[in-house]
Amino acid sequence: MADSLISIKGLSAGVDGETILHGINLNIKRGETHVLMGPNGAGKSTLGNVLMGNPVYELEEGSILFDGEDITHESADKRALRGMFLSFQNPLEVPGLTVDAFIRNALRVKNGKPVKFMQYNRELTETMKILGIDPSYADRDLNVGFSGGEKKKAEILQLLMLKPSFAILDETDSGLDVDAVKTVSLGIKEYQKREDGALLIITHNAKILESLKVDYTHILVKGKIVASGDASLVEKISKEGFEEYIA
């Protein structure tokens, strides 16, 4: 699978000595959107975090290749600089660091030079508009006092501004009202349209996927991918739940 953007081989990982993921294999190509579904506690978020390099998790076995290169033991910042991105299920609050300063710092690091002020400002304003984020949020401290929906929108804002080639969206739709889900979905669609990137969307429900192009669906149960299919698998799960897969 040399043409895979991300290639996960026999990945086992856990936390505090407890194994959560058991031998995950997954290949995602550029331009593809994969959906990862599964019941609570299946290890979905663990997979997202392990892929991004969260040091809380211990890698037990297996490897992760990005663009053909082994990144299994790389730190999160190096992975990000290669083009990886994780939209957090619970974005952290960082008092004193504004949304604007954060994105500018991240872009500066990514591009290896300071951002062009005018161009950046225009892009930030336009992107915030698409996501229905009030312009004043640029000067607010990152995620501090944001509602659940606002936090998730801020994640998608970062996705669109940082333009990663592979993004993991960890339950970006959880806890959002119908309108917020629509907006977030719109943002993801915008990413699909603009970038020839790959997406791994971790979700509980199909609502967020309605207007998105989905290529593959995987079902994760007890740390194993128990089924894979195309977009139709999402509908099946929506109707029937995971019962069939929980043996």
């Binding site: 040091p55 809380v56 992975r79 990000a80 994780l86 952290l92 004193g96 690091v109 970062q158």
Partner: peptide
């Protein structure tokens, strides 16, 4: 540590992530 990881997931190095949090 979770906040440090959060900033690192955007490409910011660990030491810079810590400095940003402290500056903040």
């Amino acid at each position: 540590d979770e906040a440090v990881f959060y900033l690192m997931s955007r490409g910011i190095s660990e030491s810079e992530a810590r400095a940003l949090i402290v500056s903040g």
